[in-house]
Design a binder for these strands. Structure first.
Lengths: 173, 173
DNA sequence: CACAATCAGTTGTTGCGTCAACCAATGCGG
DNA sequence: CCGCATTGGTTGACGCAACAACTGATTGTG
């Protein structure tokens, strides 16, 4: 029963409360927009984007799960739903018959190409355009410090959803 | 099909990817620790803390829902479970017979008093202690700017979970 | 005072994520 | 070449959140 807990200072508490509020509200806002405009959850969108940016537009289930911070069962369920909608296809990996490869279909590419502008707009109006250039850099540093502990292997740091050059779609057709 | 979408710059994309990773991983980490050590989700913990800090340790369901960013149905389900565990009690409001008041019980106070140190420790080791004092201030500002849009009424800004002076528990019994 | 509209809260249904169990394939030690 | 642990992936069951529908109380309006 060590009573040596370091309680939070006023400043710490205030920042923490806001961070928690952010983590509650932001995912909701992203899901709401994507679901309304494209029928996709933010997670599904991220998975499709990851596939779209992969070589051959194909990725092993395990790697995709790692990149999207999903458990394998979760990804399996999601992949089944996406496959039923014709947005991805799954087929056994030729070199390792345990493994499964997932590929985004043309319909999937079309969908995210159609969804990307609205999503980027949501990202801008809800977050990025509300911050100064300096604050965006600070956010990068702060989130990086925290992720060094929460995600030491930088699994999520890699692809996730790249917007820099557009949806990475359109070409490669 | 307006092609005037402003795609994200390299810096914006990097910061965004990290923010998303944070919103994915942090709630999970908080839930995991609280669930393991106290059998509470982070949401349940927040709700109990809100009640503990309220006058008379009592709050209207609607207000509690607003403070915790819950829909009323969600809070109703959670409250039923917490009541079954003896952590809160519900009784009709005497002045408005539509309304229901929720009160945290002694058992509930004991539980959060027991859970608070571990939770605060998690908050410190996973976030606050990884940041400089300056960065904590920056985080406060950044989150504030975003919340001004996501939570314009500052519903969550208020109580949520106060740690500044300890769990606000312990006495008033 | 009657009646409509609104508010507070609960309940049932659906969908998604987690966990545990399971099957198939690989690789490794003998 | 035969066990046997490990890896890759799927499936089913359970828990929680969102949504819709519903009850009961209150307010507003004529």
């Amino acid at each position: 029963m060590s009573s040596d807990t370091r309680w939070l200072s006023t400043e710490e508490s205030a920042a923490w409360v806001r961070l928690i509020a952010l983590t509650e509200l932001l995912p909701n806002a992203l899901d709401a927009q994507l679901l309304r405009d494209a029928g996709l959850t933010h997670f599904e969108y991220g998975a499709l984007m990851a596939l779209a940016g992969a070589p051959e537009r194909t990725m092993r289930m395990t790697e995709l799960a790692s990149r999207t911070n999903a458990t394998l069962p979760r990804l399996s369920h999601v992949a089944r739903r996406l496959e039923e909608r014709g947005l991805i296809e799954r087929f056994p990996c030729p070199t390792d018959r345990r493994a499964t490869n997932a590929t985004i279909t043309e319909a999937g590419l079309d969908l995210i190409a159609h969804a990307a502008p609205g999503h980027v707009d949501t990202v801008r109006t809800n977050v990025l355009d509300l911050l100064t250039e300096e604050q965006i850099g600070q956010l990068y540093q702060i989130a990086g410090a925290v992720l060094a502990r929460l995600d030491p292997d930088e699994r999520l740091a890699a692809t996730s959803c790249q917007f820099s050059e557009g949806p990475a779609v359109a070409r490669a057709g």
